[in-house]
């Protein structure tokens, strides 16, 4: 498998010819990045195409699938419907920055692994970011509540029953170690 672990992000050449470039300092996973971009750049595209953080996925680019879910100041939001300029001065957390330590796994990541809560894996980063927030919001209390409050993350492989089980496992661990 290790042949396909992510390549190091290539340095981005400064793109010539775009008008009205704005300068934004973006705080992602605790690190500041200074970007000069077209104001039309969404947070999702900034992460994927400018910072090489491709864990957040583009599934619809219009707020209908949840694959791009990330945290802004701890709240789960859709990065495809957020302009990069709108999050200046805020703390952005992506799937790459979720684990408490380098090389470790967040309890939610471990729970998804344990319960096979995905198949193709494409919606998974968004599911996990959403699930972590769902528990923190105190909304993951019953199975029905988990289902309802996780309904903004489509899984076309339909791993839903396993996702619910994973969240219950992680919830217990997250509640022990807030």
């Amino acid at each position: 498998m290790d042949t396909f672990s992510p390549l190091k992000a290539a340095p981005l050449s400064r793109r010539a010819g775009t008008r009205d470039t704005i300068e934004v300092v973006l705080n992602v996973n605790g690190r500041n990045h200074r970007l000069a971009v077209d104001p039309r750049v969404t947070l999702l595209d900034a992460l994927r195409e400018h910072l090489g953080l491709t864990g957040s996925k583009k599934g619809c680019d219009q707020g209908q699938c949840g694959a791009c879910t990330i945290h802004v100041d701890g709240r789960r939001v859709l990065s495809c419907l957020t302009l990069v300029a709108m999050v200046e001065g805020k703390a952005v957390t992506t799937i790459e920055g979720l684990a408490p330590e380098e090389g470790g796994l967040h309890p939610m990541q471990q729970a998804f692994l344990d319960h096979d809560a995905f198949q193709c894996g494409y919606c998974t980063p968004g599911q996990i970011m959403s699930a972590v927030a769902c528990v923190r919001e105190g909304l993951a209390t019953t199975d029905d509540d988990i289902r309802e409050y996780m309904s903004g993350n489509l899984c076309r492989c339909a791993a839903y029953p396993n996702i619910v089980e994973a969240i219950k496992q992680a919830r217990a661990e997250m509640e022990e170690q807030p």
């Binding site: 949840g66 879910t69 789960r76 859709l78 419907l81 927030a133 769902c134 919001e137 903004g152 993350n153």
Partner: peptide, 9 residues
């Protein structure tokens, strides 16, 4: 309405 993420936004 919408989803938890959209409601946060």
């Amino acid at each position: 309405a919408a989803s938890a993420q959209l409601r946060n936004m």
